[in-house]
Amino acid sequence: MNPYRYAKALAWTGVFMLAGTIIFWAILGQNVPPYSAELSADEFAAQIREHASLIRIGMIVQMPISVMWFTWGVAIWVVMRAIEKENGSNSILSLLQLVGAAFTTIVFVLPCSVWLAVAYRPEVMEPKTLQIMYDFGWMFFDMAYSLTTMQLVAFGICVLQDKRERPLIPAWAAWFSMFVVVSFAVLTMMPLVFGGPFSRSGLINYFVEFSLFFVMWLVLDIFILKAIGRLEQEHYTGHASR
């Protein structure tokens, strides 16, 4: 049996989730940018009440599609295992990546359920209650970055050990993804400020960090799909192109 039989389908789930996240989490979920922490509770509640229907649709769809972060993580694991097999079968990095993917899935799902609760019946809720729930969602979403950092640093280190003359994933993509997830460290400033570039809707902690994250996601989507194609080819031609 082809050992990469389901891997390509799983790699595509990364592409589907990326598109879905832009539509449902970002656009419909009113997260471009998120509501500022500088808004008063009343101003914030008025915004939520006005956009509750869209936020509900966004979060209702985003929650189930978030499982694709894990299925995509399995596709990444397949590529990493192929590299590790050539390097003495040490599977520690692929294990870290897989567990990181599983936990990052929760980072997508849990805050979306919180924001869904905010948009559930905002007209009868106290503005301050809505605001603290929304804040909680963002604290979890931004501050649990180390799970994704663990996942993609493990991936990057593994990819750099690829002994193939033409590596399955180029070194620049590995370094780029490691840079992006390490740069999440700047999110540490988010719970300490309300406005300015380091706030949850600010220039650095929202526009720069999230743009980098989405670009990295697209880059890895493309290279994981290509890598699985090459592994299938290597399997069928019966010899590795090394």
Partner: peptide
């Protein structure tokens, strides 16, 4: 290849 990381980090 660490130059790539260094270039990106310095840019940020």
């Amino acid at each position: 290849a660490i130059w790539i990381f260094i270039a990106l980090d310095c840019s940020s």
